[in-house]
Nucleic acid binder design. Structure first.
Length: 552
DNA sequence: TCAGCTGGCACCTTTGAAGGGT
DNA sequence: AACCCTTCAAAGGTGCCAGCTG
């Protein structure tokens, strides 16, 4: 069956599926106490497969322009929108099937960067990852017809560097490189996301990678933003812009900003050299071949010291990488990988809302429970994570059966560390993703994530019941040590900001453990503009504790 | 000393309410 | 009463800059 499905995708992807697959998966299955699941007959697929969904990045050419210059995204305490905004055109969906669209932003590597000599250079090791968050499109869940009707826009997604951000914006570290990812989750027949037969796939457009900054470093990026962003119209016109500055300062002559001077001087002396020496600029596909974030492959270029060219790793396919997974009852699921390229664009927009995903560095697929607490904002409500055993925190019956709510399992934020080091440490394939259909276990789009035997585990991290009602949920004592704050700024039970809490000695190993959490809960989306917080990082002991739950 | 961050600023677009006309 | 269109103000999104911080 896998092969049949794989036939619809590129050979390369098929190859990857096989490469990363079963042999690597088995150990985790064994460790987690998972038995090999029977193959799921393809005949059980009633409708279009989720892996057949095509996603086209809107304004791809614009994205490429930025990418080639080395995209930078401003992050502020209050949150800053991305520009270009993330918009996609969906096709190939089942018009009647409901889907959930989410975006997360994951570290592209474990480096910190600095802008030097008109190019980005590695400046050291990355700071601890921020608590992962997911931004769920507010229309979710919606039918395929709805998503395909018009352009799906995530323009209201905001980035922040505020570790305690209460608005649910995606938290990032400044001067770090990130990769946005789009996740498409299929709600099952009961609108229960992740409850049964849940499938999802992840799409990664390499040209959307960016480096987060608190102020623009590259003058080229500044100009691109000004030229293309309507809100920056006031700064348009290179010369006029300077004139405007002079007017603002009550001067009759143009005032050239320090930054401009610096940039122009640098450009004059270094730009050409930078391009030639770096093998052209960042957006060039030939630069990297290992950008496979979605599949767990390191995003970073082994030779990360290479300036700009290495800052935006390229996938072998310069267009798109994505993988698909099919979840089945009893932990059976199909796992499909695909890789396609798209070039189309379209127009239209909509709203969205946020999700909170697990800390990327420690619990990619953290199903780790969190206490919930609704926080209102203009367009989104963020819920703190909660921890409950599945089934606990019963939700309103009507909500569960009649509303478009979904039992959303938390999405794991890919953890780039520590597998992709500057040293080019071999990446451990996202094994679970590439197992064949006969033994698939739910897997999260996380490099190190492993299998989960339970249907919801793959995506799971939320307890839908509690979230649906927006009620705080007190995590069971057994895992309370990894309690999740009601909001980003809250602290765990030990009084430490979860964000930075890292399991000593095993920064990224938790990936596997993380998967074990995924079975603990689901999250439900009932209304638009809800933001969910998936838990903050858990303590190392929690990982152990939780893992043990599923290994027995 | 300096790179990075913050808050305030002016300018601009977007959004939605209010009002008037058909 | 129900639309449709225009106007207007408020809200919010920009990059820039001076000052602050570690």
């Amino acid at each position: 069956m896998l092969q049949e499905k794989a036939s619809t995708v590129t050979d390369e992807h098929v190859s990857r599926l096989q490469t990363g697959g079963e042999t690597d998966l088995l150990p985790d299955q064994s460790r987690l106490g998972l038995s090999t699941a029977p193959t799921v007959p393809s005949s059980t697929e009633p409708d279009q497969n989720i892996e057949n969904i095509k996603v086209v990045l809107h304004e791809r050419e614009l994205w490429k322009k930025f990418h080639e210059a080395g995209t930078e995204m401003i992050i502020t305490k209050a949150g800053r929108r991305m520009f270009p905004s993330y918009k996609v055109k969906m096709t190939g969906m089942n018009p009647k099937t409901k889907y959930i669209l989410l975006i997360d932003v994951v570290p592209a590597d474990d480096h910190r960067y600095k802008f030097c000599d008109n190019k980005w250079m590695v400046a050291g090791k990355a700071e601890p990852a921020m608590p992962g968050r997911l931004y769920v499109h507010p229309d979710s869940p919606a039918t395929g017809a709805h998503w395909m009707r018009q352009l799906v826009s995530f323009q209201k997604l905001k980035l922040t560097n505020n570790h305690l951000d209460p608005f649910g914006h995606i938290i990032l570290n400044s001067m770090h490189k990130y990769q946005p990812r789009l996740h498409i989750v299929k709600a099952d027949e009961n609108n229960a996301f992740g409850s049964k037969n849940t499938a999802y796939c992840t799409h990664v457009f390499h040209e959307t990678a960016f480096i987060s900054v608190t102020s623009y470093q590259n003058h080229k990026i500044t100009q691109l933003k000004i030229e293309n962003n309507p809100f920056a119209k006031g700064f348009r016109g290179s010369e006029e812009g300077d004139l405007r500055v002079s007017r603002l300062q009550g001067k009759e002559y143009p005032v050239i900003s320090k930054n401009m001077v610096r940039q122009r001087l640098i450009s004059t002396h270094s730009h050409l050299a930078g391009k030639l020496g770096a093998g052209v600029l960042a957006g060039h596909p030939q630069v990297l071949s290992s950008y496979q974030y979605d599949t767990g492959v390191p995003l970073s270029n082994p030779d990360s010291q290479d300036p700009i060219s290495t800052h935006f790793p390229q996938s072998r396919d310069p267009n798109l990488l994505y993988h698909c997974f099919k979840h089945r009852d009893n932990g059976r699921h199909l796992e499909l990988g695909c890789k396609r390229s798209y070039l189309e664009t379209s127009t239209a927009v909509s709203d969205e809302h946020y999700f909170r995903s697990p800390p990327s560095y420690e619990s990619p697929l953290l199903s780790h429970p969190y206490r919930t607490e609704a926080i209102t904002s203009r367009e989104a409500c963020m819920y703190g994570g909660m921890e409950t055993e599945s089934g606990s925190g019963a939700a309103d019956a009507d909500d569960l059966t009649n509303s478009p709510s979904i039992n959303c399992n938390m999405w794991a934020t890919v953890q780039p560390y520590p597998r992709y080091g500057m040293e080019g440490v071999p990446y451990q394939p996202f094994t679970a993703h590439f197992t064949n259909s006969a033994t698939v276990a739910p897997v999260v789009p996380h490099p190190a994530s492993s299998v989960v035997s339970r249907p919801q585990a793959d995506l799971g991290v939320y307890n839908s019941a509690a979230v649906q009602r927006g009620l705080p949920v007190i995590p069971p004592s057994t895992s309370s040590s990894s309690s999740s704050p009601s909001f980003p700024g809250s602290r765990d039970s030990s009084g430490h900001p979860p964000l930075y809490h890292r399991k000593p000695g095993s920064p990224l190993l938790p990936h596997r453990d993380f998967s074990s959490y995924s079975t603990q809960g689901t999250i439900s989306i009932r209304e638009q503009a809800y933001q969910y917080q998936v838990g903050l990082s858990s303590t190392g002991s929690n990982w152990t504790d939780n893992k043990s739950k599923f290994t027995s």
